[in-house]
């Protein structure tokens, strides 16, 4: 019983380190899309691991923590996806070493209409 609590604390520590690395990536990455990549992935697994560790320390809280974990898994990719689509739509500048941008090319091909409101 006591060992389970220590395992939970260690798992929480790993989760918080992942959260910290995600925020560090938010600062180091050069453009919006790479920031979204680092921010979303690291913060998702970080939160899941932290909540899992708390669940191992307090097993009777399992139900609510499970709902929180499912909520984070479902909503976090959706919000990052919506945000990156909006960023591409309003034409945020990409990193100077970006290799290809096929979406831009396809939009220019199909949007032969003059107005783009």
């Amino acid at each position: 019983m006591e060992a389970l609590k220590y395992i939970g604390a260690i798992i929480s520590l790993f989760g918080s380190i992942f959260l910290f690395l995600g925020a560090l990536g938010l600062i180091r990455m050069p453009d919006v899309y790479n920031r979204i990549q680092a921010g979303t992935k690291a913060s998702t697994l970080g939160t899941i691991l932290t909540l899992l560790g708390i669940g191992l320390i307090m097993p009777s809280w399992g139900g609510k923590l499970f709902i929180l974990i499912m909520f984070v898994i479902i909503t976090n990719p959706v919000s990052s996806h919506v945000l990156s689509r909006a960023a591409h739509h309003i034409g945020v500048n990409m990193y100077k070493n970006t290799v290809t941008d096929l979406l831009e090319k396809d939009e220019n091909n199909t949007n032969s209409k003059p107005e783009k409101q």
Partner: peptide
């Protein structure tokens, strides 16, 4: 906005703590 998103996710973990 992405900074706000990461902050709110980290806030969930902190409130659980």
């Amino acid at each position: 906005v992405i900074a706000f998103d990461v902050m709110s996710i980290a806030g969930i973990a902190l409130i659980a703590m």
